[in-house]
Lab assay of single mutants.
Amino acid sequence: QIFVKTLTGKTITLEVEPSDTIENVKAKIQDKEGIPPDQQRLIFAGKQLEDGRTLSDYNIQKESTLHLVL
């Protein structure tokens, strides 16, 4: 699982696999929060994550925290 922290300070927990794409993660966030993926920007280690890449591409491991910017 990974954590996604929103600007409001809320933390969302997501069940993911390293092979999941960023697009996939955004879809999971939409399921939980109702935020359309095209409004979501995910930041990890100061980098904006691209939809077509996977979590493992960015070396995002379990218990990692991503930041969600709208």
Rank of each mutant, 00 (worst) to 15 (best):
Q40W: 06
K26W: 03
Q40Y: 14
K28I: 06
V69L: 12
E23L: 12
E23Y: 14
E23W: 15
G46D: 08
G9K: 04
K26S: 01
K10L: 11
P36T: 06
I60K: 01
K26D: 00
L66N: 01
R41E: 11
K32C: 11
D57M: 05
I29G: 00
K28F: 05
G46S: 05
D51G: 07
D20L: 05
T21F: 08
K28M: 15
Q1S: 11
Q48P: 10
L70F: 08
D57G: 04
L42D: 00
T11P: 04
D57W: 09
E23G: 13
H67K: 07
I2V: 06
T54P: 05
K32V: 13
E15L: 12
G9F: 03
I60S: 01
V69R: 08
T8G: 12
K10N: 08
P36Y: 05
E23S: 14
T65P: 03
Q30T: 10
I2M: 05
T54W: 04
K47S: 09
S56V: 08
E33H: 09
P18Q: 09
E50K: 07
P37F: 12
S64V: 07
Q30V: 04
L7P: 14
K62Q: 15
F44N: 03
A27P: 00
Q39H: 09
V25I: 15
E23T: 09
E50V: 08
F3Y: 14
K32I: 13
P18Y: 11
K47I: 15
Q40R: 02
P18F: 15
T13I: 13
E63T: 07
T65I: 13
T65C: 09
I35L: 06
I60Q: 01
K28T: 03
Y58M: 04
L14Q: 01
G9D: 05
N59Y: 07
N59R: 06
G9A: 04
Y58I: 03
V16W: 13
Q48S: 11
L66V: 09
V25Y: 01
E33F: 11
L66K: 01
V16E: 00
V16C: 11
L7K: 09
G34H: 07
T6K: 04
I29A: 01
P36E: 07
F44C: 05
E15N: 12
R41A: 08
V4R: 00
S64D: 13
E15G: 07
D31E: 14
K47Y: 10
P36C: 10
D57Q: 06
V25A: 02
F3A: 04
K10V: 10
L7F: 13
G46N: 07
T13C: 11
I22T: 04
N24Y: 13
L49P: 01
V69A: 09
T11M: 12
L68T: 02
N24V: 14
K62E: 13
L70S: 11
Q61Y: 09
K26L: 04
S19L: 09
R41H: 13
E50L: 09
S56G: 11
V69S: 09
K32D: 03
Q39L: 10
Q61M: 10
T8L: 10
Y58H: 04
G46Y: 05
L70Q: 09
E23D: 08
A45H: 13
D31P: 02
A27H: 14
I60M: 04
Q1L: 15
N24K: 11
A45S: 08
L66P: 02
Q30C: 14
K5F: 06
I60A: 02
I60L: 04
V4S: 00
I60Y: 02
E17D: 13
T65E: 08
T21E: 03
L49E: 00
S56Y: 10
L55E: 00
T6D: 07
D51R: 04
V16T: 06
H67M: 12
T6E: 04
T21I: 05
Q1V: 15
K28E: 03
T8V: 08
N24R: 13
G34Y: 04
K28N: 03
S56W: 08
L70C: 13
P36W: 06
L68D: 00
T11R: 08
R53P: 05
F44W: 08
T65D: 04
D51A: 07
Y58K: 01
Q48M: 13
I22E: 00
L42V: 03
S19T: 12
L55T: 02
L7V: 15
Q40E: 02
L70R: 08
V16M: 08
E23P: 03
T21V: 05
I22N: 01
K47D: 07
I22K: 00
I60F: 03
A27N: 11
D38W: 13
Y58P: 00
N24P: 00
L7T: 13
Q48T: 14
T11C: 15
F3H: 11
T54G: 03
S64W: 04
L7H: 15
S19Y: 12
A27C: 12
E33N: 07
T13K: 08
D38Q: 12
Q61R: 08
R41D: 07
E63I: 03
L55C: 05
I43T: 09
L55Y: 01
L55N: 00
D51V: 06
F44R: 03
T13F: 08
